[in-house]
Design a protein around this nucleic acid. Structure first.
Length: 155
DNA sequence: GCCAACGTTGGC
DNA sequence: GCCAACGTTGGC
């Protein structure tokens, strides 16, 4: 069982949007980075847990928890010419980009802000990815200890 | 809106 | 395979 953090811009898709989807499930599409694609393909497992992180907004923060509820599968938007995620070099019999479905579990009682994360000694010492200078991937792995640390900050 | 830090592209 | 130019991300 693995733990993850997944970023989304709340103006595009927020945790409230996820909560109000039918069955509270949504395909997490639009990933166009090979490192992240490989994580989805090789390391994501049904039943994993992920933090929902709001990025590029007034208060960047971990805002809740979701569950990975599908295996990695082709992201249909790569084949849709009208989509901004269209990739003309990706062929249907050899899809380049993947997605997983995520299911809403809960909101944090209090969002854990990026500022809080940066001030936490354990997260600094354990090299938590999103507080590392220059880290730009929209998905990162979270260790069990880091997961528990962040859940404790929620209180 | 700025800009640092990448990642990607394509000519050579 | 190198690298300049360009695009993107995301905090500030």
């Amino acid at each position: 069982m693995n733990y993850w953090l997944m970023k989304s811009e709340p103006d595009e898709f927020s945790i409230d949007d996820l909560k109000t989807r039918p069955h509270q499930i949504e395909p997490w599409g639009g990933i166009r980075n090979y490192q992240v694609r490989n994580m989805l393909r090789d390391d994501f497992k049904k039943g994993d847990l992920a933090f929902f992180y709001h990025s590029s907004c007034k208060v960047p923060a971990v805002v809740g928890v979701m569950e990975i509820c599908s295996d990695a599968k082709p992201d249909p938007s790569q084949f849709e010419q009208k989509s901004s995620y269209f990739d003309p070099k990706s062929l249907p019999d050899n899809p380049r980009w993947l997605l997983v479905e995520v299911k809403y579990l809960r909101h944090f009682k209090n969002p854990v802000t990026l500022k809080q994360l940066k001030q936490n000694q354990f997260l600094l010492e354990s090299d938590f990815p999103i507080i590392r200078k220059g880290f730009r991937l929209s998905v990162c792995a979270v260790t069990k200890q880091q997961w528990q640390c962040i859940e404790a900050l929620e209180q």
